[in-house]
Each structure stands twice: as C-alpha cells, then as structure tokens.
C-alpha cells in the first residue's frame, strides 16, 4: 500500500451529522441542527465553505481531501478555510468525526 494511502486510512474523517437537515440555496447551503428542535435556528453557510459542506454531506472526508477540494476553490487559502470550517462546524456538532 502506498504511504499516502496509508496516511489517508489513518486520517480522521469528517461527515455531516445525521441530525442536520440541509438544502441548497443561492451560493450557499442552509442547514438546521435537529438535535434540539425546540431551540434550533437555521444557519446559512456561504461559499466557499458550502463546497466543503457538500463534500462531507456526500460522505466522510479526511482533512487532506478537504484541503485538496478547497485548493480548487480558494487556492493557497485552502488550509485556513478547512481549519475554520472544521473549527466552526465540528465545534457546533454539525460535522462529526467518523
């Protein structure tokens, strides 16, 4: 197995929480956390972070995969974008480590 494949296997993967409902919007995704529906408030996630949301909603992704994806969107800001994305959405429980 190539080293980079082993690295990918060992990497934490992130996925959209199954408790989040979300829809596509104009240059964004709109989502709502269903864990506490009595106090839930819809959230708007604009581009370019929305492209990362779509990726984790499609299936679990490693941080390196997200950086590669972000690189196509924001170039050299990719690592910062992914870090901010994971800090905000994983911190809020909207994205979960699998």
């Amino acid at each position: 197995m190539p080293d980079d494949a082993r690295d990918l296997d060992a990497e934490v993967r992130y996925a959209a929480s199954p408790d989040v409902a979300w829809v596509e919007g104009p240059d964004r995704v709109a989502l709502v956390d269903l864990r506490d529906p009595a106090s839930a408030t819809p959230q708007l996630c604009p581009e370019p972070a929305a492209s990362l949301w779509r990726a984790v909603a499609e299936g679990p992704k490693g941080e390196s995969q997200l950086v590669a994806l972000a690189n196509d969107v924001v170039g050299e800001q990719a690592e910062a974008l992914v870090a901010a994305f994971l800090e905000a959405l994983a911190g809020a429980g909207l994205v979960v480590a699998t």
Binding site: A21, A30, V32, T41, P42, Q43, L44, C45, A49, E87
Partner: peptide, 19 residues
C-alpha cells in the same frame, strides 16, 4: 463560517419549506 438566519427573511421559501 455559518450565520444565523434567525430573522427568517434571510431564508428563501425554497430553503425554509423543506427545513
């Protein structure tokens, strides 16, 4: 990274109805 749509007018109907 995400913004609250707490005042509702930020959401479109196409977003609000399914959510």
């Amino acid at each position: 990274m995400t913004g609250s749509a707490s005042q509702g007018e930020d959401l479109t109907l196409a977003e609000a109805v399914p959510l």
